[in-house]
Write a protein that binds this DNA or RNA. Structure first.
Lengths: 220, 220
DNA sequence: ACAAGTGTCTACCGATTGGTAGGCGCGCTC
DNA sequence: GAGCGCGCCTACCAATCGGTAGACACTTGT
């Protein structure tokens, strides 16, 4: 009965969701840019437009908010997993481009995701390790499976260590997206004719990933 | 006279240097593991074995301590620069291994260096960008020069974007060393016959860097 | 012997932190 | 229309933060 009314009109629950969602969005932004310890509940509440006490009504503690933000980001990642499996349905180089493209797109869509994940890995390595095992290990399993398949086909370099390869690519993507405006812009001269630092960054990332994977250096 | 006595016994100045050095070492460790905002002056002082007020005698503010730690790490990096130029005196693949080996060694010697630099990039992107331009841009210039030289020789793949390539390799090294115990151990099964996660990590990193650089995939 | 540092200490400060208690208004259900 | 729960509020709390003031020991140059 309650469910029927709530799902039909969802008057109360929509407001609740709205506030919670707004808090999560602001918290993600601040946690990612200033860090967890560098962000006060006051800061978050102010940007949302409510009082600190109201914030603590939705999340019973700062720690719960942290977990909420992290879970939300990881759940968004999981939502994109079907699209990832579709990409994996291809073969050879197209499969490669699709798979890595989906990963890049996820972090490029909101770089704060990369910043948050990186910060969480630094702040709470142990917790993060277990969470990653749950959330990304299955996906890594799919990818490494295809790499090994490619090695049998002869398309993929037999020297590739599938798991270690994926880890390194992820490091490049996450670290690159998180600190893009720092390291890249500091070292990539903007006056270059090859496009913006971001474009050069992604293009070279794809090239490195491709040529170090395929035995014939992919599609040069 | 003062110099003679000081250099022979170094009673006062050694104590002074000792305290400062000790503070810098502890601060590096805590800033790297807990972050700047997650570390209190009390924490640092306690681990050094002095009082907070004594700490503030050596560094007039927490901000000055942050800068002191950062400058110290970057100066240690600069001390290794000559050794790096020696490595660059070789040619072909040996030059490549020596150069990237020196970089890996620097961060592997103390992973907190990687963690600190990563955190600083996240916390203070602007400041860090300028500092990197001063400290690592010259070194990057040397490396990209050799890459371009290799492209003329025909050893290096002409598709390589030298600056972007170096940025990506640095991302892999720094991010990998900083979060090694997190992402790696979560995804690299320890029961594998190829060695410890760290060994697999470094080996695959070198393979990716090598095969994506040289036209003949380096020395397979 | 004595004045001038030098390094560390205790004691304290105002500001900010995460979190709690309790009141107020609104819309809902009986 | 009385009760009730939800969402937000004001007001407050103890703890901790970075930083300061000033006393005390000890060494050093004259």
């Amino acid at each position: 009965m309650v469910d029927r009314v709530a799902s039909a009109l969802a008057p109360t629950s929509s407001v609740v969701t709205d506030a919670r969602t707004q808090i999560l969005a602001v918290a993600l932004r601040l946690f990612a840019t200033r860090g967890f310890d560098g962000t006060s509940l006051q800061d978050i509440a102010q940007l949302v437009g409510i009082r600190k006490a109201s914030l603590l009504y939705h999340f019973e503690s700062k720690e719960q908010l942290r977990l909420g933000v992290l879970d939300h980001v990881l759940s968004v990642w999981n939502e994109g997993l079907p699209r990832l499996l579709v990409a994996a349905a291809r073969t050879g180089a197209p499969r490669f481009s699709s798979l890595i493209g989906e990963v890049i797109r996820f972090f490029a869509e909101d770089r704060n995701r990369a910043r948050l994940l990186l910060r969480e890995s630094l702040d709470r390595g142990e917790d993060m390790r277990m969470r990653l095992q749950t959330f990304v290990a299955p996906w890594v399993g799919v990818v490494t499976e295809y790499i090994r398949e490619g090695q049998k086909n002869g398309d993929v370099d037999p020297h590739v260590d599938p798991e270690a390869y994926v880890v390194q690519i992820v490091h490049m993507v996450v670290s690159g997206m998180a600190t893009a405006s720092t390291l890249d812009h500091a070292l990539l001269p903007a006056t270059h004719s090859l496009g913006s630092p971001d474009e050069r960054h992604v293009r070279e990332l794809l090239r490195i990933a491709r040529t170090s994977l395929f035995r014939d250096r992919g599609t040069p």
